[in-house]
């Protein structure tokens, strides 16, 4: 554990709670892509199956359970409890376009040809692109509410901070995980456009609007 990794995890937890709290307190899932949330739930379920056979630390276990339960709760709120407020008409990104390539990539790049390792690789690749339905939705509606922007900023920062953590671990421990690093860089690049808009608009008190 190092400071970058810890800050990354804090940012990740913050993102998850910002989203849950926003939906719960406004009693609305407007502007949130249910498809992205389903993809994140698949990511956590596929990656954290090792909960059943590998124990790393209490911290690790608690965080895994937290991400699984929070993402399931988010999906439940969007598709069941506040279904009437969910903006399905604008949430039209075809998730098979990210599911199938992630699965194919997992079969090509993995650390061993076992079910759990393939699921782990798949989850890493899928996580990198799981936000695309949400970004697509923001582009389609042309704007995002400020809390949605804060959520996206925290979620994007998490992987960017992990990149610093990987650089640090490479120099201090010689640890290098090429699958996570490559996917993590792609994931962070996907947020760059949004980071720019966030800094130039949302932080200056304006609403995030995308030009058509």
């Amino acid at each position: 554990m190092n400071l970058f990794r810890l800050m990354g995890d804090v940012s990740h937890v913050l993102a998850v709670f910002i989203l849950l709290a926003k939906i719960w307190r406004t009693r609305s899932a407007a502007g949130i892509s249910g498809r992205s949330q389903i993809l994140f739930t698949i990511v956590y379920l596929a990656r954290y199956m090792d909960l059943f056979f590998s124990f790393i630390s209490l911290y690790n276990t608690v965080m895994k359970l937290l991400f699984i339960s929070a993402s399931c709760a988010t999906v439940y709120l969007i598709y069941f409890k506040f279904r009437a407020t969910y903006d399905g008409n604008h949430d039209t990104f075809r998730i098979e376009f990210v599911l199938v390539p992630s699965l194919l990539l997992a079969f090509i790049f993995h650390y061993s040809m076992s079910f759990f390792e393939l699921a782990w690789s798949f989850s890493i690749f899928l996580e990198a692109v799981a936000i695309l339905p949400q970004l697509f939705m923001v582009t389609k509606t042309g704007e995002a509410e400020n809390i949605t922007s804060h959520y996206l900023f925290a979620l994007g920062s998490y992987r960017a901070l992990y990149i610093l953590n990987w650089i640090y671990r490479y120099y201090t421990e010689g640890h290098f995980d090429p699958i996570a690093v490559c996917a993590g860089i792609v994931q962070t690049i996907l947020y760059c456009d949004f980071f720019y808009l966030y800094v130039t608009k949302v932080l200056q008190g304006r609403k995030l609007q995308v030009l058509p």
């Binding site: 990794r5 995890d9 990740h12 990656r47 090792d50 590998s54 790393i56 690790n60 965080m63 895994k64 991400f67 650390y111 061993s112 076992s114 390792e117 782990w120 992990y162 953590n165 290098f176 995980d177 090429p178 996570a180």
Partner: peptide
Amino acid sequence: AIDPAAHDEL
């Protein structure tokens, strides 16, 4: 090198 069983990150 990576030990496949040691995914210690989230």
